[in-house]
């Protein structure tokens, strides 16, 4: 992807990559100018909130123009190839985590706050499929172990204010079990389930497919 197109007589645009990058910067600069256009510029003595954003945006636009010009005048690199699967799936996983960890209002709808115990495995299972090498069982085991570990690490040990369980479960349980005990019990349960799956898998494992050529193992 990085080799320049030397002697590319047949294409008119000599550096498509810098040209595109430059145009992108110009777009961003203009967006900045527009977004900051309602802000007062102020004076030297009392600089307004709009002063710096405006000049920065102008600077970005100029950089973009220079870059685009160099793309037209000088040989540069080809346009990069951009994959779709990875970015799309990873974005989906991140979105799923953000929407389920606690109640979020999206327009008129509010997502249910399901806590780490749902958001975590969901994110891992989804994200795993960003790679073409994904295998469902393996991801389930990973999700079980990681969620259990994160619950203990973030919820119990570091005591961070992150919702672990769905709000309705906590409400239903309030009083009968201390949340910390519940957390430990459930984490243990997840961990054991993971171990169980791992043990089952060892018995029925298919050969060859699971061993990806790996420089460290060779």
């Amino acid at each position: 992807m990085d080799e320049p197109l030397h002697g590319s007589g047949h294409t008119r645009i000599r550096g498509p990559q810098p040209l595109a990058a430059g145009l992108g910067l110009v777009g961003l600069g203009l967006l900045g100018v527009w977004a900051g256009s309602d802000l007062p510029q102020g004076s030297m003595r009392a600089m307004g909130p709009g002063f710096l954003p405006r000049w920065l945006s102008v600077g970005i636009t100029l950089c973009g123009l220079a870059l685009a010009a160099s793309g037209l005048l000088r040989d540069g690199q080809r346009l990069p190839s951009i994959a779709l699967r990875g970015p799309a799936v990873v974005m989906l996983a991140i979105l799923a985590f953000a929407l389920t960890i606690r109640p979020v209002a999206v327009g008129p709808l509010t997502t249910p706050g399901l806590g780490l115990i749902v958001a975590g495995p969901l994110a891992i299972l989804l994200a795993g499929y960003a790679s073409p090498e994904a295998r469902f069982r393996e991801l389930v085991i990973l999700a079980l172990f990681l969620t259990a570990g994160c619950m203990l690490l973030f919820g119990d040990l570091l005591n961070l204010p992150i919702p672990i369980f769905p709000a309705f479960v906590l409400e239903a349980l309030s009083g009968s079990v201390s949340p910390r005990l519940l957390l430990r019990a459930v984490a243990a349960g997840l961990g054991l389930t993971g171990l169980g799956l791992l043990a089952i898998g060892r018995g029925t494992r298919r050969r060859a497919v699971d061993v990806v050529p790996h420089s460290i193992t060779t």
Partner: peptide
């Protein structure tokens, strides 16, 4: 787990 969930109903 179901046992603890069942218990919870009374504690509210």
């Amino acid at each position: 787990l179901t046992a603890t969930l069942g218990l919870a109903g009374h504690a509210r």
